[in-house]
């Protein structure tokens, strides 16, 4: 298989397969999780609970008082790499083209030098977050193979994307194919790893917000 064939495979059948596994996993796991049911809360609520649930979705974007000081790396690193990923994934023009081709939606992208800079910052933040995971006793204690595996899974598409754009290490065509392949691995495994928090964190926040809002505590 030559480089262009490899590229054509990852752009064609590979993408099809990865998206299929992703769709299958997301639908399955969402149903699996959210059909487990819960008992209705019979205590008369203090506030409108559902509204506060929605509010919690946004409230949890910010560190609660005192928390930033206790774990600055988690917050700075976390913000930078999440926002960085979002910018790189959703505002790099070739990515927008992909989304347009898949969903018919498109929006203006950002110039390449901006994307390049954000990518470097994102990579750096991810390295910092990894170092923090290894060095901070609590994170090291909690970490399993999956935590490191998922880090690699997330890091590779960003790295290969950068190498491809910058023509580093391997010819562009091969690097681009590797980039797409690594991104496909990421999306295919997302529903089955902790990466699924991209979907369930919203549900979790809503539940937490709803449960506590009944008692009159905006969490």
């Amino acid at each position: 298989m030559n480089a262009l064939e490899f590229l054509a495979w990852v752009r064609g059948p590979g993408l099809d397969l990865a998206l299929a596994v992703f769709a299958l996993g997301v639908v399955w796991r969402l149903i699996e999780i959210y059909t487990l049911g819960r008992k209705p809360d019979l205590a008369p609520p203090r506030r409108v609970p559902a509204a506060s649930g929605w509010h919690t979705l946004w409230r949890r974007m910010l560190p609660p008082p005192g928390m930033f000081r206790r774990s600055p790396v988690s917050y700075v690193g976390g913000y930078v790499f999440h926002l960085g990923l979002a910018i790189v994934v959703f505002f790099f023009i070739p990515h927008i083209q992909l989304i347009k081709a898949l969903l018919g939606l498109s929006w203006p992208g950002l110039p390449s030098p901006v994307i390049d800079a954000v990518t470097v910052v994102t990579l750096a933040a991810m390295v910092v977050v990894l170092i923090d995971r290894v060095r901070r006793p609590v994170k090291r204690y909690l970490s399993t193979f999956e935590d490191y595996f998922v880090w690699v899974l997330t890091f590779l598409p960003v790295l290969t994307g950068y190498l491809a754009v910058k023509h580093l290490w391997l010819p562009y065509t091969t690097m681009l194919a590797l980039h797409i392949l690594s991104a496909e691995l990421l999306i295919a495994l997302l529903p089955f790893t902790k990466l699924f928090h991209a979907f369930t964190a919203w549900g979790s926040r809503w539940f937490n917000g709803e449960i506590n809002a009944r008692r009159g505590v905006p969490v």
Binding site: L7, A8, R11, G12, P13, L15, D16, L17, L19, A20, V21, F22, A23, L24, G25, V26, V27, W28, R29, L30, I31, E32, T35, P94, H95, Q97, L98, K100, A101, L102, L176
Partner: peptide, 24 residues
């Protein structure tokens, strides 16, 4: 077709959603 767009039609996606729903 832009280089970043899928190189071919997605044949499995719809089936995958149905399969996911069935498994779920």
């Amino acid at each position: 077709r832009p280089l970043s767009a899928p190189a071919g039609p997605l044949k499995l996606a719809a089936g995958a959603v149905a399969a996911g729903a069935a498994v779920g």
